[in-house]
Design a protein around this nucleic acid. Structure first.
Lengths: 94, 94
DNA sequence: TTGATATGCAAGCCGTCACTTGCCTATATT
DNA sequence: AATATAGGCAAGTGACGGCTTGCATATCAA
């Protein structure tokens, strides 16, 4: 299990979330292509696969397998806990 | 310069933000005490000092020096950019 | 069935991060 | 002035993370 904070601490993973938030349901190869074409990130397929594994482990990406393809979907729900941790907190006067 | 995502990718730093968000203007020694007493984190003074440096470099903590003491203040503003990056984004239909 | 496509598993390398240790500077106290 | 307090700087260590490489599995097409 990877927490949301670690999952977000990587620019490649953040860019993957950018792409998925714009266009859901992409496969590993499609994501690899977009990262190379639009962001100049030339990583191996396995590197991206591991990144997607981290994002899925943190609950930020959900997957659905059909045939030999695996489709990835962005789930923004875990992001809510980040800000609420420090915004909705009672203050102790000094 | 440290970005917000890296600064948040550490439980000790997140706990420091917890403490500062509850009670602003604490010194290094006060923060060290709280981490040991209330959270069982027994790190050296230098370790906490380095964490505060990271948080300050990310803009999450601001400091004010008076005499030989340095007071630390929580600044939640950089947190806003995290969620807005993925929530306020136009979606491309597939 | 044969070959191509889409992905998974695992080991290894290398850089970075968190933490410690030792020493130093500056301010306050007596 | 001498001592104590609050913090800073820098080098070293151990562990973890990101990436690659090689091989394996599963599905589709011809």
């Amino acid at each position: 299990m990877v927490d949301v904070f670690r999952a977000l601490d990587d620019e490649t993973r953040r860019t993957i979330l950018d792409e998925l938030s714009m266009r859901d349901g992409q496969t590993l190869f499609e994501i690899c292509s977009l990262l190379t074409m639009r962001h100049g990130l030339s990583h191996s397929r396995q590197a991206i696969s591991q990144h997607l594994g981290v994002l899925e482990s943190a609950g930020l990406v959900e997957t659905e397998r059909r045939g030999r393809s695996k489709f990835h979907y962005f789930n923004p729900e875990p992001l809510a806990a980040i800000t609420t941790r420090w915004t909705t907190r009672k203050r102790t006067e000094q």
